[in-house]
Design a protein around this nucleic acid. Structure first.
Ligand SMILES: [Mn+2]
Ligand SMILES: [Mn+2]
Ligand SMILES: [Zn+2]
Ligand SMILES: [Zn+2]
Lengths: 139, 139
DNA sequence: CTGGTGATCAGTAACCATTCCTGTTTCCGA
DNA sequence: TCGGAAACAGGAATGGTTACTGATCACCAG
């Protein structure tokens, strides 16, 4: 997502695009995988050593609130963050802990079914999948 | 699930059905909802005040391992446990925290699709849904 | 029975991801 | 330029969960 778009989404919720928030976004795109808040923090710190871990948590929370960042929660793992905010599938290896994306599985339809089958106002629906990655299966 | 069946499932994995594990199962069926480990602990303690919270965690973990208990993990909430181990939908209200079951949504098919679309050996797939319950929407 | 052996347990300390708090800095509009 | 609000750095606190340790229990061979 382009910087002006991010700035606009923040502005609509009354936030500004600060240098720390921009650094968090850059770290997320550098990480390319599904980093934890601490992973992001370590990357940000390489270029801006004075940033605090709490600031990274807060920036991620704001960026998620305005729809620029997504997050998923697995058991036995810190929260993982993602620039891909569309409904999609991520799987976590229960042995090595790596998270990767599973292409070709449409989840939008499932969300629609959920929305039509509950008296709740659904705000979020994520599929959390665990398994053994190919590398870990052969060992 | 009947006690002899539970005992057999435990035995197949080298465990025994101890009084504490039985008490945890009873607490789960009494709670009827989706209690946290601490909720279970408080119920167990009413009849057996000497039980430790750690024992409840360990019992839940063993019972889950042998397939008698299921668990789900939401953000901003402790892990919730459930006697319903079939693939099904649970939704958590982001305001009051209550978890309830959504009937009529088949998830088995989604799990099948996932299994056929990843090089992983899938061991677990849960749909985690959040929203506002009817009571919390009107207030 | 009875003694031995490994599993389980109670109690408590430690862990760790995340949030909270406080004083300081930065940002932005008037 | 100035004043107020938002954001931040640093560090302390929180809370769910796990790890550890010595005591107890269940089970079985003799
Ligand atoms: Mn992803
Ligand atoms: Mn359920
Ligand atoms: Zn792996
Ligand atoms: Zn509610």
């Amino acid at each position: 997502m382009l910087v002006p778009d991010v700035r606009e989404k923040l502005r609509r919720s009354g936030y500004t695009l600060t240098s720390q928030r921009r650094a968090v976004l850059e770290a997320l795109s550098k990480a390319k995988g599904h980093p934890s808040a601490e992973d992001v923090y370590l990357i940000v710190k390489r270029e801006n050593p004075r940033v605090a871990l709490g600031t990274v948590y807060q920036a991620l929370s704001v960026l998620e609130e305005v729809g620029v960042v997504g997050s998923k929660h697995w058991a036995e793992s810190p929260t993982r963050y993602d620039l891909n905010v569309e409904p999609h599938l991520d799987i976590r290896c229960i042995r090595c802990g790596e998270v990767s994306e599973v292409p070709g599985v449409a989840l939008g339809g499932v969300e629609e079914i959920i929305r039509n089958n509950t008296p709740y106002r659904v705000t979020r629906a994520t599929m959390v999948v665990e398994g053994l990655c190919p590398a870990c299966t052969d060992s």
